[in-house]
């Protein structure tokens, strides 16, 4: 599998990462090496094999619809890098 710098740009954008030019060259080479190695899986014929996302057959784990008290707001906000008395603060994100 060939990995191009355009692909790395796209993946970096999706990942919200911004590698500099040098890192990008390195990442492209590394990813290509790793991804090419992963192509070994294509040797194995998996036609008709059901993808296994959950390893054990646990099913229907649910809780009842009963309210418990919420957390003290201060406890939730105290680790925020930017906040006011009641909310987390972020740079402008609202449209319109």
């Amino acid at each position: 599998m060939k990995i191009t710098e355009e692909m790395v740009d796209y993946i970096a954008l999706l990942s919200r990462l911004k590698p500099d030019a040098e890192e990008k060259v390195q990442m492209t080479a590394e990813l290509e090496k790793i991804v090419s190695y992963m192509d070994v899986l294509n040797i194995l014929d998996t036609d008709g094999v059901e993808p296994l996302s959950h390893v054990f057959p646990i099913r229907n784990v649910m809780r009842s619809d009963e309210v418990s008290s919420s957390f003290p707001r201060e406890e939730l906000l105290k680790n925020a890098p930017s906040r006011d008395d009641e909310a987390f603060l972020a740079p402008k994100a609202v449209e319109g």
């Binding site: 784990v61 649910m62 809780r63 309210v67 707001r73 909310a87």
Partner: peptide, 29 residues
Amino acid sequence: SCTTEFGGAPNTHCCPVCTGMPGTLPVLN
């Protein structure tokens, strides 16, 4: 298990699960 009640002062119907704190896990209602 936080309430779904409408309104409420900001971030008062919240817990580590619904604010996405690391290490927390969802359990379906």
